[in-house]
């Protein structure tokens, strides 16, 4: 039996911004459980989609009651694979994430689709689905319940982390454009002053001729 979970999320940033943030979201204050992050495969397809595989190492702590049933020296970290396809033509990003270690104990597979929000074109919506299963005889139901609860906590952290990275990205941009605006304005003022000076000079010249 597989436990299925589905939810929708909203980020108040454009799809482009969200995709850019997706590659820069670690580390953030909500990602302390993410230890390492690597791209281990990447290609642009002939149809101009970007396919990537990211390998993540995360800490994986089991609750007390579960530890009794686990091997004593089981690694307290897990390897996660996250495959993704970014389609800039259709403006969709699809990700599939799952754990490749301890999968018999608890397997969590997540699929996310990031799209432009139909009601507000400068927002991005995320449709998230998850399949949670366990093959531990007699305990699978309890482990799945634990897995689902932890998954939900993880979603909250993911969204907070995303919002943090997006705010940071957008916080940098207005300040940069403010500087640009200031420079432009200074240039305009200088140009106007120069023109005025020329004008005055030619007027003075004319007066001389009179």
């Amino acid at each position: 039996m597989v436990k299925y979970f589905c939810c929708a999320g909203l980020l108040k940033s454009t799809w482009d911004q969200v995709c850019i943030a997706f590659w820069q979201r670690y580390p953030n204050p909500y990602s302390n459980h993410v230890l390492t992050e690597d791209i281990i495969f990447r290609e642009v397809t002939p149809t101009n989609c970007l396919k990537s595989r990211r390998l993540l190492t995360k800490t994986s702590r089991a609750p007390r009651w579960m530890e009794r049933y686990l091997p004593k020296h089981m690694a307290r970290k897990a390897y996660i694979i996250e495959d993704s396809i970014v389609d800039p033509q259709k403006r969709t990003m699809t990700t599939l994430t799952w754990n490749i270690s301890h999968a018999r104990l608890l397997s969590v597979e997540e699929r996310c689709v990031y799209q432009i929000n139909p009601d507000n074109g400068s927002w991005t919506e995320i449709r998230r689905e998850a399949w949670i299963s366990s093959n531990v005889y007699g305990l699978s139901r309890a482990i799945q319940e634990f897995g689902l609860a932890r998954f939900k906590t993880g979603v909250t952290k993911t969204m907070k982390g995303f919002e943090y990275v997006l705010a940071k990205m957008q916080g940098e941009m207005p300040s940069r454009s403010l500087t640009e605006t200031a420079t432009d304005r200074a240039r305009e003022t200088a140009l106007a002053a120069k023109e005025k000076a020329k004008d005055l000079a030619s007027q003075a010249q004319k007066k001389q001729y009179v």
């Binding site: 039996m1 597989v2 436990k3 299925y4 281990i40 495969f41 396919k51 595989r53 390998l55 390897y79 694979i81 495959d83 396809i85 699809t94 599939l96 799952w98 490749i100 270690s101 597979e109 399949w131």
Partner: peptide
């Protein structure tokens, strides 16, 4: 590094194993 650490990434299909996904 992946080889040295024996991380089982080989032979994993892109976009995951084609599992039978059913709602419960």
């Amino acid at each position: 590094a992946i080889q040295e650490k024996d991380i089982p990434v080989d032979g994993v299909d892109f976009m995951g194993p084609d599992k039978d996904k059913t709602e419960t």
